[in-house]
């Protein structure tokens, strides 16, 4: 695993947390605005928890600087918008922050503003998915990365809005549907993790030139570690989602802060396992290890 990936683990998780909070709370506010629950003419928007999204995305953007070799050149990272998804991700993070600031200072629930900001937040998460998915690395390609990233966003948004809205009966329908979506996402994720490990272990037995040249050095030890860590993370997220689900159906009575902690920890651990799939090859060179060996033996 690249040592430089830690800031990215937190950057992606926090950006998805901010997007989830904003999108889900905005959706809840829309329901309120449309008179489904109560009139909202005097709604204090920042009092709903929407204000949290801004500091979180600022923290996410700040942490991302630490994975750059040249942080003071970071302003150049939007220079390749025509082809680079990373440029788009940085652009959309900035746009989300600006739009959030506008909603924060206006502090009034304008549906168009909430809708556009939510869309930008979602596109930011999608462009993050595109960065990793387009690398073609095993475990990152295809729908798996989007499932991981958008799944985290949905789970964060669902449990955060459940915590903020609370377990009152009249809000139950706003929490129940997202929880069913979270359970579906978790079921698909579990199948995807197991299928990936099984497929890669079968491929590890081959010894072609392609395999020797491939930068994704996923050996059996790494795959076993990946399986253990990702299942641990998955289990924590599952616990968090189930606590909310059982709570709103009256089977248990636990603080809804607990699922927020469980899901955050679970998704963080899963993201760590996602970045484990960078492989170990980037970290070391056979020449460096050979030179260190020869220097140590000469001492």
């Amino acid at each position: 695993m690249l040592r430089k990936e830690w800031p990215l683990i937190f950057n992606t998780i926090l950006a998805q947390l901010a997007a989830g909070i904003f999108i889900f709370l905005s959706a809840d506010i829309m329901f309120v605005l449309h008179g489904l629950l109560e009139p909202a003419a005097n709604l204090n928007l920042n009092g709903t928890g929407l204000a949290l999204a801004g500091p979180i995305i600022i923290l996410a953007m700040f942490l991302s600087l630490f994975h750059l070799g040249k942080p003071f050149r970071a302003y150049r990272a939007m220079a390749n918008l025509p082809v680079s998804w990373l440029s788009w991700e940085i652009f959309l993070s900035g746009a989300f922050l600006i739009l959030w600031a506008v909603t924060y200072f206006i502090n009034k629930p304008y549906p168009y503003l909430l809708g556009i900001t939510s869309l930008v937040a979602l596109l930011n998460v999608v462009s993050m998915g595109n960065i990793y998915s387009s690398t073609g690395r095993p475990g990152w390609k295809g729908a798996v990365t989007y499932l991981d990233f958008i799944g985290s966003m949905v789970m964060f948004g669902s449990v955060a809005s459940a915590f903020i809205i609370g377990g009152a009966d009249e809000f139950k329908f706003l929490i129940n549907a997202p929880m069913i979506a979270c359970q579906l996402i978790l079921a698909i994720e579990l199948i995807a993790i197991l299928a990936f490990v099984f497929k890669q272990k079968a491929a590890a037995d081959e010894s072609s030139l392609d395999q020797l040249a491939c930068s994704s050095d996923l050996n059996e030890d790494l795959l076993s570690k990946y399986l253990k860590i990702s299942i641990s993370g998955w289990f924590l997220s599952f616990m968090g989602v189930e606590i909310v689900y059982l709570n709103i159906h009256g089977y248990i009575t636990l603080s809804l802060l607990l699922p927020v902690i469980f899901v955050f920890a679970g998704e963080l651990i899963k993201r760590y396992s996602f970045f484990m799939l960078v492989g170990e090859s980037e970290d070391s060179s056979q020449y460096i290890s050979a030179i260190s060996y020869s220097k140590n033996s000469n001492k």
Partner: peptide, 21 residues
């Protein structure tokens, strides 16, 4: 021009083709 984000290393499928200082 390089900011050292290593996205090229992640995108490249070939082992050791790009290296980070």
């Amino acid at each position: 021009m390089c900011v050292g984000c290593c996205s090229c290393i992640l995108a490249c499928p070939y082992k050791y083709a790009r290296q980070f200082n």
